[in-house]
């Protein structure tokens, strides 16, 4: 489902990834771990094709980084949910509109938007806060909104880049439980983290990156 074949990438003359090869199967939950600056985020960006490899190739479902056309990239991204450490919510619209945004920009109709947004907000237990603005929510709640936005398009995978990096231990656990629940429903999850606590609590496969290369 996701395959990296000998991927090497330079960004601004700097070698970021060196000969990275791995595979993620359908419905899998895996951690991407390693020190800051090791290349975890770059690996995630390759999957939603924000960065293209200089050598090797990345295959995501039916899309191949060596062959994909620029106008196909938005279609690929509609099948992938992305969650970040800093949430990336839009401060000028409320919870409902932040989640609906992902559907509106892809041309989904009004009634369908309402149905799907309410469903995913219920899934992250935020239905009652749908009219609030991001600034009035706690960090954990903001991350739940971001997760709701990531899953509203029914993606086959969630890419989470340090989703608990800004949160305390209790809230991190809460976010992890939501991700676990989503994973149990069949969505694959690839989560970048360097939290030992999370790695130890949740015994998923670890893909370890150091200096741009994978460690066994």
């Amino acid at each position: 489902m996701i395959e990296f074949y000998n991927v090497s990438t330079r960004i601004r003359e700097q070698m970021i990834l060196k000969d990275v090869t791995f595979r993620l199967v359908k419905g899998e939950f895996a951690f991407l771990t390693g020190p800051s600056g090791a290349g975890k985020s770059t690996i995630l960006r390759h999957i939603y094709m924000d960065v293209m490899p200089d050598q090797g190739m990345v295959i995501v479902e039916n899309y191949n980084s060596a062959k994909i056309k620029e106008k196909e990239i938005p279609m690929l991204r509609r099948k992938i949910g992305v969650v970040f450490q800093d949430f990336k919510l839009l401060p000028d619209r409320n919870v409902f509109d932040n989640v609906a945004f992902a559907l509106r920009v892809t041309g989904v109709k009004g009634r369908e938007i309402r149905r799907r947004v309410m469903r995913v907000l219920a899934e992250v237990n935020l239905g009652h806060k749908r009219n609030q603005y991001p600034a009035s929510l706690s960090g954990g709640e903001q991350q739940r909104v971001a997760i709701a936005r990531a899953i509203v398009n029914n993606p086959f995978i969630i890419l989470a880049d340090e989703p608990t990096g800004n949160l305390d231990a209790a809230t991190s656990l809460e976010i992890m439980q939501i991700l676990e629940k989503i994973n149990r429903q069949g969505t694959a999850i690839l989560m970048a983290t360097h939290s030992q606590e999370i790695l130890e609590t949740f015994g998923h496969r670890r893909i370890i990156v150091r200096d741009g290369a994978l460690r066994p």
Binding site: Y48, D50, K71, P74, M75, L76, R77, R78, V82, K88, L90, P91, F101, A102, V105, T106, R149, N153
Partner: peptide, 12 residues
């Protein structure tokens, strides 16, 4: 910020 999110969620 909004452009970044648009690109991320697959806006053309």
């Amino acid at each position: 910020d909004i452009i970044e999110v648009m690109k991320l969620v697959g806006a053309t």
